[in-house]
């Protein structure tokens, strides 16, 4: 079972990290959410996987580990707050800048040769974006 859980966490990380590396804010928010699932599971698993053990005090002999559970519980709520903030920031950025690219500007597709010039225009554009704000 441990192996399966480890692999599942790995897959969540894979898709989360890949999406975080994308250029559009919404994809990044999706990635962050997936990644926080992975991290929450990881933290939770640090208390080991217990099957059928009580989390509430009773006459039982052994219990599940409550410490990582308490940590993850707050992490989930904070994670929600963070996702909400990122999404609303993305929304605001999209309306202000007219683009949902993470850098705030659409990157024009250019030949590799013109890269230098492109960098300059980008800078200009960014300046203009800053000025209009």
């Amino acid at each position: 079972m441990e192996l399966l859980v480890a692999i599942a966490i790995g897959v969540l990380t894979f898709s989360g990290v890949y999406l975080i590396l994308r250029a559009r804010t919404f994809s990044v928010a999706l990635g962050l959410t997936l990644f926080s699932y992975a991290v929450n599971l990881f933290l939770f698993a640090m208390g080991r996987l217990h099957t059928g053990k009580p989390a509430v005090l009773s006459d039982a002999v052994s219990y599940t580990d409550p410490v990582p559970q308490a940590l993850v519980l707050t992490a989930i709520v904070i994670g929600f707050a963070m996702t909400a903030f990122v999404l609303i920031l993305a929304l605001r950025a999209h309306t202000e800048l007219g683009s949902d690219h993470v850098d705030g500007v659409e990157k024009p597709k250019a030949e590799p040769k013109q890269r230098k010039v492109m960098g300059k225009t980008n800078k200009l554009k960014r300046k203009r974006a800053g000025a209009t704000r």
Binding site: E2, L3, V5, A6, I7, I9, G10, V11, T13, F14, S15, G16, V17, Y18, L21, R22, A38, F42, A45, M46, R48, L49
Partner: peptide, 21 residues
């Protein structure tokens, strides 16, 4: 990006498994 994601994923899985056992 695929390589980075795969790298992170493998490490995360290995770390989890190593700790759990």
């Amino acid at each position: 990006d695929y390589s980075i994601a795969a790298g992170c994923a493998v490490l995360m899985a290995v770390l989890t498994f190593a700790v759990l056992t």
